[in-house]
């Protein structure tokens, strides 16, 4: 705490250099996004670059006409559904695995190293491997089978690592107290463990949804006949040369932010409820 209370000390010169560097970094992160956000409101005769040729919602309208840019609605709804399935499965399975890892047992490091491997194996290899496997056993790849599995190999490591971080700091005496008071295993999980790790599980949910919703490389050979949204966007980059591309960027980015806002809102509500109970 001593660190924070010495607030009034004079700032060294290096602080101003670092602050300027940080400001530039933020500009670097946000600048390009802002330009496509602005350009998505390009006038009807405007092009892919500045200047703005008027202001319109033309390109957003264009997005929803089926002929103009492929199947935006269908791919969006598939990505949404896939993201939600991945989210639920990741939260449940990561929580279970996190609980399992609190005790040492034979072979526990195998799953841990598989998770790390899953994180560092290039995504295109997962795509290729699953695609080949389905090809050889003659299963039809589908977004809800092969692509789902491919996405889970990407979200599980994050889910597991987050659960590790949570349970490393988790005090088991709360559970012991619950058990001493006669709670069953399930009651202990329901009334003690889940409320305590709840906010982190929301974090896992948000993480896994967004990772799946934006995943491109792992979907490439596993989605089957029907595109997910990132595949659709990728297709557009090669054959669409109008600002409708930017409109799509603005819409999906807006949607991602909505998901974050929802997740943060839920955590805030959970915190408040907990506060009221205490």
């Amino acid at each position: 705490m001593a660190f924070f209370s010495k607030n009034r000390e004079r700032r060294p010169t290096s602080f101003y250099f670092l602050a300027a560097f940080f400001a530039l970094f933020v500009l670097f992160l946000y600048g390009p996004m802002l330009t496509i956000f602005i350009l998505s409101f390009q006038g009807e005769n405007g092009g892919l670059t500045f200047p703005m040729n008027g202001f319109s919602f033309h390109w957003f309208g264009n997005l929803f006409e089926k002929q103009a840019v492929g199947d935006f609605g269908g791919s969006f709804s598939r990505s949404l559904k896939l993201g939600l399935i991945v989210m639920v499965v990741t939260v449940v399975v990561s929580f279970m695995a996190g609980m399992a890892f609190r005790k040492r047992y034979k072979g526990d490091s195998i799953v841990f190293y598989l998770a790390i491997a899953s994180l560092i194996v290039p995504s295109i290899l997962i795509s290729l491997g699953i695609g080949l496997l389905f090809n050889i056993v003659q299963w039809q790849p589908q977004w809800f089978t092969s692509a789902l599995g491919a996405h889970l190999t990407w979200t599980f490591p994050f889910g597991l690592l987050i659960m590790f971080a949570v349970f490393n700091r988790f005090d088991p005496s709360f559970e012991e107290a619950a058990r001493d008071l006669g709670a069953s295993n399930w009651q202990t999980i329901q009334y003690v463990v889940l409320p305590m790790v709840g906010p982190s599980l929301i974090g896992v949910a948000m993480f896994s949804f967004t990772l799946s919703y934006d995943e491109f490389a792992r979907t490439l050979m596993t989605a089957g006949a029907l595109n997910t949204l990132p595949l659709e966007i990728y297709g557009m980059t090669t054959n669409v040369t109008t600002p409708v591309l930017y409109a799509l960027g603005t819409v999906t980015t807006g949607f991602s932010f909505l998901v974050i806002a929802l997740a943060l809102g839920t955590v805030a509500i959970m915190r408040r409820r907990k506060g009221q109970k205490a």
């Binding site: 449940v92 399975v93 990561s94 279970m96 695995a97 609980m99 399992a100 890892f101 005790k103 047992y105 526990d108 195998i110 799953v111 598989l114 998770a115 491997a117 899953s118 194996v121 290899l125 997962i126 290729l128 491997g129 699953i130 080949l132 496997l133 050889i136 599995g149 491919a150 889970l152 190999t153 599980f156 597991l160």
Partner: peptide, 26 residues
């Protein structure tokens, strides 16, 4: 121990089917 194996099995299974076997296939 048995409950640990039960809890870890879904994750282990998914990794086996969608990570290990595909890499071996490659």
């Amino acid at each position: 121990k048995r409950s640990s194996y039960f809890l870890i099995s879904p994750m282990a299974l998914i990794f086996a089917v969608f990570l290990v076997i595909p890499l071996l296939t490659i």
